[in-house]
Design a protein around this nucleic acid. Structure first.
Lengths: 192, 192
DNA sequence: CGGTGTGAAGCGCTTCACAGCG
DNA sequence: CGCTGTGAAGCGCTTCACACCG
């Protein structure tokens, strides 16, 4: 909205963009602690800063990537430069051909270097982009080196110590879900 | 579980794997309509079939992919063969170098062929893997050809007619979320 | 006992609704 | 008026708790 030149914004405008209700937006902003005025709504720039203060990393937070296959490379390219303070600073793979090289601007290390690199760079978040059969083992290794958060692309429920945050990105399930509702929509259309 | 040779399973076992409570599992299975017995729990094979009958496509449901860049190719490779009745049967890109070729076993068409291919193959679900700046336009084009469900990888909230299902896969937000909680976990550790 | 199925209660997020204000 | 901030109500999903059963 900033780039569109907007200075002020009302809760119902934010609501429309986020596909929620205006009451929801106001509630959430209450949590953030930023207050608007009934006359002008919220000041876009200040609001952005207030949210950032609450949610953004205060300094560069390095991220590790494990698995530099098709998916890993795509993630590397996709995330690159998208969030200034969240960057994948180290990638790991067991393929000797990749190790030592640089992919999408990121250095690829051997799996055995994982503990050393993670502790040296102070990494506490990792992305798992390995085959499902290896995901659990990789997760355990990451957690044992001190990682606190995981993004998991493998279609497996990881078993990890509690206190470790796992966010699953399950494309297969997402596709099944959409396909299910799309079928319903088509059926409904036919019924008419 | 089938491949592990399990024949029967109790709700609390399923619960542990899915990281939910056993009551939740029993509730959900009530919805599915499959009944177990207190003695044997659920019969894995029958349960699988009952769930499939409720959720799986009755026949091959073709899916379109728009955008054959890094991400699109990774999605193509990842989804390939994962669900027998959900397959990406057509990919689209505006890059003339890709058009006419085959990527990960999937034919790549020009954007202009989209309506014809979608209607010929009876596609009702599409995956959007184009840059954020083009996602909205692509979504509108897809919807106008009759697509009912979308998976959207672009970090943009798509505005679509209601009745159209959109599932956002937002890696950036997922990473921010995990990074946030990982920071909290680290802080807590320091406090001790 | 240790399971399932399920009515009823619990709980937390979402929405309502309205005072307050320029 | 029209918008914000927020107490209170609403609403659904989740959990409890228990009858029933081999």
């Amino acid at each position: 909205m900033l780039s569109e030149g907007a200075v002020n914004v009302y809760s119902h405008q934010l609501a429309a963009r986020a596909r929620v209700t205006s009451a929801q937006v106001r509630r959430d902003l209450m949590t953030v602690g930023y207050e608007g005025s009934p006359q002008r709504g919220y000041v876009v720039e200040d609001l952005l800063e207030a949210i950032g203060k609450r949610l953004d990393p205060p300094a560069l937070q390095p991220v590790a990537l494990v698995g530099v296959g098709n998916l890993g490379r795509a993630v590397l390219a996709f995330l690159r430069g998208r969030r200034p303070r969240l960057a994948i600073t180290a990638a790991f793979d067991r393929d000797p051909v990749l190790v030592g090289g640089i992919v999408h601007g990121c250095r690829v290390y051997a799996m055995r270097d994982l503990p050393a690199v993670v502790s040296r760079e102070g990494i506490n978040v990792a992305i798992i982009a390995v085959p499902a059969s290896e995901a659990q083992a990789v997760a355990m290794e990451l957690v044992s080196t001190g990682i606190k958060g995981l993004i998991n692309f493998a279609p497996v429920r990881l078993m990890v110590a509690k206190g470790i945050v796992v966010e699953d990105i399950d494309m297969t399930t997402a596709l099944e879900k959409v396909a299910y509702f799309a079928r319903q929509a088509v059926e409904e259309q036919v019924r008419k």
